[in-house]
Each structure stands twice: as structure tokens, then as C-alpha cells.
């Protein structure tokens, strides 16, 4: 795999603080918790969405419907890549998304293609009153005209570098790391 250099951009307390603020901003933007639905994009967006939902429920004392989006089938490069990517399941809350304020949570916003795919999938599910795009890290490098509504941290990195969000459920710890792989590795 060659050399790999990791720098911690956010440690666990920093991520928690960012998620706290993001949860508050969601309530502020929506002027309350009415009709809120929180959906995470598989896979790490789901864990982040769960954390945000838990914070919202604790702070506001209400139940917030939540779910998961798997955007694999909506990828714009699906037929160009092989072998076929693993398809995960989308779980929408029973309440549906019609006329609701849907908060779409992802770990890293980069090209914007995943967000585009998520929005298309949501539209196939119903007609949300509003979609809020909520990301832990915005690393720039957009290829589509898409902007986040709520951001944990904006970082500016080289195109060749990778921003990785690590969550305890998948990676054993909560953090955001910048990964630089040496030339030989690529």
C-alpha cells in the first residue's frame, strides 16, 4: 500500500462539539423540530445521523424519525465501474418524507455527486417540503453546483489527499483524519 501519513483534523471531543452545534443549527433552521426527519447516507453518514438524532431528542425531548439512504443505485458512474458495487438497503422512516423537512447527513462533502444521488433517491420516495444538506466535513472540490446547509468543519486539502471520518461502529474511534498517500502508492 506504500506510505500513508495520517493527521488528525478533529479528535472525538471536537467531533462531538461540532455535532452538538449542527444539531442546534438544524433546530434553528427548521424553527423547531416539527416535521423533521434525519436520514444518513450509508455508511458513515448513518452513524453521524444517529448521533445527531440522539442529541436532538435529548435537547428537545421529542422523537425524531430517522433512516438510512443507500445511494449505490443512483450513482452516476454505476454502469462504468466494475465489479458491481455492493448495494445496501435504504430504510425510510414509516412517516415517509412527504411534506417533511428532511435532513440528509453525510460524512464528507467532496464532488457533490453523492448528494445529487441522495436527492434523486429522496425524490423517488416522495416530495419533501425541504431538504437540508448536513455534512461533518466540507473539503471543497465540487463538480456539481451543490452547497451544504450545515457544516461541521470546512477544510482545504489537496485533491490527492483524503479526508476520512472515523466512527466507533465501523472504525473503533470517533475522529476526522487527513490521509496523504505517497506517490508510489498511487
Amino acid at each position: 500500500m506504500g506510505d500513508e501519513k495520517r493527521i488528525i483534523l478533529m479528535d472525538a471531543p471536537a467531533v462531538e462539539r461540532a455535532l452538538d452545534r449542527m444539531a442546534r443549527e438544524i433546530v434553528e433552521r427548521n424553527q423547531g423540530t416539527e416535521d423533521l426527519v434525519v436520514l444518513g447516507i450509508r455508511r458513515r453518514g448513518v452513524e453521524l445521523a444517529e448521533r445527531i438524532r440522539a442529541k436532538l431528542e435529548e435537547d428537545e425531548g421529542v422523537r425524531i424519525p430517522s433512516g438510512a439512504l443507500d445511494i449505490t443505485l443512483y450513482r452516476d458512474d454505476l454502469m462504468e465501474v466494475g465489479p458491481r458495487p455492493v448495494v445496501g438497503e435504504s430504510n425510510l422512516p414509516l412517516e415517509g418524507v412527504d411534506d417533511r423537512c428532511v435532513v440528509v447527513v453525510d460524512d464528507v462533502l467532496f464532488t457533490g455527486r453523492t448528494s445529487r444521488a441522495a436527492m434523486n433517491e429522496l425524490m423517488d420516495w416522495g416530495r419533501p417540503a425541504r431538504i437540508l444538506l448536513c455534512v461533518l466535513v466540507d473539503r471543497g472540490g465540487r463538480e456539481l453546483p451543490i452547497q451544504p446547509d450545515i457544516v461541521g468543519r470546512v477544510v482545504s486539502v489537496l485533491p490527492s489527499q483524503q479526508v476520512e471520518v472515523l466512527v466507533p461502529e465501523e472504525d473503533g474511534r470517533l475522529a476526522v483524519e487527513l490521509v496523504t498517500r505517497s506517490e508510489e502508492a498511487r
Partner: peptide
């Protein structure tokens, strides 16, 4: 599983073209 998916681009897919 059968549609599309040129095997020679498997590597590109693993690196993940989506962000």
C-alpha cells in the same frame, strides 16, 4: 450484476470515484 461493469475498471471502482 450482469449489466455493464467492465472488469478492467475494477481497480478504478475500488478507489471510489464518488465523493
Amino acid at each position: 450484476l450482469l449489466a455493464g461493469g467492465a472488469p478492467e475498471r475494477a481497480e478504478a471502482a475500488k478507489k471510489g470515484g464518488m465523493g
